[in-house]
């Protein structure tokens, strides 16, 4: 009797651990957008369509080895239907690796051409910008930087300026953008000087923000969502959109793509249509995740209202093409 009880108990645990099947419509979304921002949007979609969404969220600590590597590894037997990325470089890479499927969403009609893949493998929307976060207690307005090149300004203390490792995430994308804009030699020279000056290299953009908020850094290069979070929490910081008089600020759109061979393609397409709608862009502006909408929408971002931002005159493809060289250079420079 007792052995029967043990067998039944063990089987129940095993079945509980293995069971995840239900009859209702399902959708599996891999989201590399912070859970705090993406979860409400996913829930809204679930409420609207009655489709059960099973998300997998990335974490910053995993850098880019998280969901992107998972998608690459799962290519022979895809588990996900949609990949929603907080930036674009890894999405373009997934297209090259054959992980994505084309889908021309009707919601993408009014998106600018540079935010759309001509073959329909991905769409960009809801942009974030790369900003210089300044501690306003430590710097007077006249000392505030206006350009990325102010990070090399000898008048500002190098030890109190910082950026995340340019090996991963949006900082890597930013480095690639500089390579594309300035040319590989000048781009590399910029980072060599950053290294020479001894700027502080933090573990991630969130860490850069925290160091600026705490006053350990006076200036930090980070993303607008991080800056917005600090501003909304009442920290004595301000965001500077760099190079508005020159090359412009790097704007990084979110991207969304259908996974080839995913188990629920129709639901995936419905989610892409929803995500690319102006309604979602408004939600993202209100949440603080996005500051630069892809198309004119009837809403203002929760942070940096009324700021007109001049973006860098580069296509996403031009930036993406620089990635392999930048990754190699940055590793040689910063991991030694």
């Amino acid at each position: 009797m007792r052995s029967l009880f043990i067998i039944v108990l063990a089987s129940s645990i095993f079945i509980m651990a293995c069971s995840n099947s239900t009859k209702e419509k399902e959708l599996i979304v891999y989201a590399s957008v912070d859970q705090n921002y993406s979860e409400p949007i996913i829930q809204k979609f679930a409420q609207k369509t009655k489709i059960k969404v099973l998300p997998v969220y990335d974490v910053e600590a995993a850098k880019t080895t998280g969901l992107v590597n998972r998608l690459v590894a799962e290519k022979p037997r895809p588990q996900a239907d949609v990949f929603w990325n907080g930036e674009f470089a890894q999405t373009l890479l997934l297209k090259d690796k054959g992980v994505l499927a084309p889908y021309m969403s009707p919601s993408a009609k009014d998106l600018p051409a540079e935010y759309k893949d001509p073959e329909g493998y991905w769409n960009g929307f809801a942009g974030r910008a790369r900003v210089l976060l300044v501690n306003t207690r430590g710097l007077t307005p006249s000392q505030c930087p206006v350009s990325l090149f102010d990070l090399l300004n000898a008048a500002l203390p190098a030890q109190q300026m910082g950026l995340a490792y340019p090996l991963f995430g949006t900082t890597l994308t930013h480095a690639a953008a500089l390579y594309a804009y300035l040319g590989p030699q000048e781009g590399k020279a910029f980072f060599e000087k950053i290294k020479e000056r001894g700027l502080r290299i933090a573990a991630g953009n969130g860490a850069v923000r925290d160091l600026v908020v705490q006053g350990q850094l006076l200036i930090g290069l980070t993303d607008t969502d991080d800056a917005c979070g600090a501003v909304r929490r009442g920290a004595e910081v301000a965001a500077v959109f760099p190079d508005q008089e020159g090359m412009g600020t790097l704007i990084i759109p979110n991207t969304v793509a259908l996974v080839a061979g995913g188990p629920h393609p129709q639901e995936g397409q419905a989610f892409i249509d929803f995500l690319l709608s102006p309604e979602v862009e408004k939600m993202m502006l209100a949440s603080g995740w996005c500051q630069v909408p892809a198309r004119p929408v009837d809403a203002q971002p929760v942070c940096f209202k009324g700021t007109s931002i001049k973006g860098m005159n580069l296509t996403l493809q031009q930036i993406y093409q620089q990635l392999p060289l930048v990754q190699k250079d940055m590793r040689e420079l910063f991991v030694r």
Binding site: N36, L54, P55, V59, A61, Q79
Partner: peptide
């Protein structure tokens, strides 16, 4: 999909 561990949640909020 649809399930996460406590540590995954901690890291998520850490970035936030």
């Amino acid at each position: 999909p649809g399930q996460a561990t406590l540590v995954m949640r901690i890291y998520n909020y850490l970035h936030y």
